[in-house]
Design a protein around this nucleic acid. Structure first.
Lengths: 212, 212
DNA sequence: TTGCATGGTATACGATCGTATACTATTTTA
DNA sequence: TAAAATAGTATACGATCGTATACCATGCAA
């Protein structure tokens, strides 16, 4: 029995079947990406000229014009360069059961920023680490992180973080008529019906688990 | 029974107890943040002067000097401004069971970028949507997203995405001596012992669930 | 062979860049 | 009250900014 590990360069290993190719990016764009990752900002035309090994700024200008057309970079209203779609954090592929995407799909894959995708309102959002297993049947385990949106008011069956009778918990928010019940996702725990005061800290908009 | 929703401005609502205050940031830094979020780059000194309503660049310079000391912004070796710790995506607070953090803690909370935190090697990482419930007891549900690191070779008990005998699945990777077993986290499924070929697409480094 | 893109160089333009010195108020501190 | 720090203005410096026109190769199609 063979075990194949798909490395960064797929072709070097398994060879034919299936094929997980490296995402082909032009060498020039690659240099731009390095610059941006390293320095945290886009280069000026002068810097780009040197970066690409040109002797005239005009050459860099022409490259940029094409990049703008392709959406690799954008331009300010003052002409300064802005990061385009070339360095978004992650490529998003299809579903697991659907088989592995072809190299063609892979290159055309959308890219997203997890920050933007997961957090709608950064000002009003927090991340919390979850303790306990009261939501384990909802796939929220001990040690997981949740993103909490504070401004939102909970709808029925939302997962919320709430303080009920002096204790903070994470539960399902379930409203029947006027009364509210906080329902755990673990049959070893009982639903909580707040006696005096229920303080909702926010609605859980995402769950994140990070493997070491 | 009272239900309190902690809005963005906590003080406006519940008043005293507990208190979830707004993160206090100077109005000037707030303007900088807006500029950066809107334009995707840091302002020049000239722009910053106008942004803050000054008439002389020198005033903006002095503000920047203090920001640099506090780590709000950084500077290039050419003097250009770089984003500092002021706009990282998320504030990270304590644990749920530990009670709600005090406003003081809240202001001093660390901030992180989910992109950087979750994805070590962006070039070699992908995101996949999970189909099926074979890993449900490990808290990986149908519809969840997983981040896949392709270069990594799996250790024992890692969650991997693999193609075994022409089918793609997500399972625990369990190695005993020379033989490898792919173990589901669902008692309705049986462990898979690859007969001919096992192709490991990558190791799952994170699981993300996003609530609508 | 002609014509015309393509890719690169050289150079020049006004505007803006980051930095600096000098000066005037105002507020804080001794 | 006097001294010292703070906050803001005015202005000037050389360097670099983004943009533009012109020119020179090479390659390819008509």
């Amino acid at each position: 029995m063979k075990i194949l590990y798909s490395g960064v360069d797929g072709a070097a290993q398994g060879g034919a079947a299936g094929g997980i190719g490296r995402c082909a990016v032009s060498g020039r764009a690659e240099k731009l990406k390095s610059f941006y990752r390293e320095k945290g900002r886009m280069p000026s035309y002068g810097e780009l000229t040197r970066l690409l090994g040109y002797k005239s700024k005009r050459s860099a200008q022409k490259i940029v014009d094409k990049w703008v057309e392709k959406g690799v970079v954008r331009k300010d209203e003052t002409g300064k360069l802005l990061p385009g779609g070339f360095l978004s954090a992650l490529r998003v592929l299809g579903e697991v059961a659907a088989g592995w995407p072809s190299p063609a799909e892979e290159e055309n894959a959308d890219t997203i920023s997890l920050d933007d995708w997961l957090v709608e309102d950064k000002e009003a959002s927090f991340m919390l680490k979850v303790t306990g297993d009261s939501m384990i049947d909802a796939g929220i385990n001990h040690g997981d992180y949740v993103i909490l949106h504070r401004g939102k008011s909970p709808k029925n069956n939302d997962v919320v973080v709430a303080e009920v009778d002096k204790e903070w918990t994470i539960k399902f928010f379930r409203r029947v008529g006027k009364s509210v019940t906080l329902v755990p996702a673990n049959k070893n725990y009982k639903p909580i019906v707040p006696k005096e005061e229920l303080r909702v800290a926010g609605v859980v908009t995402a769950v994140i688990r990070k493997y070491a």
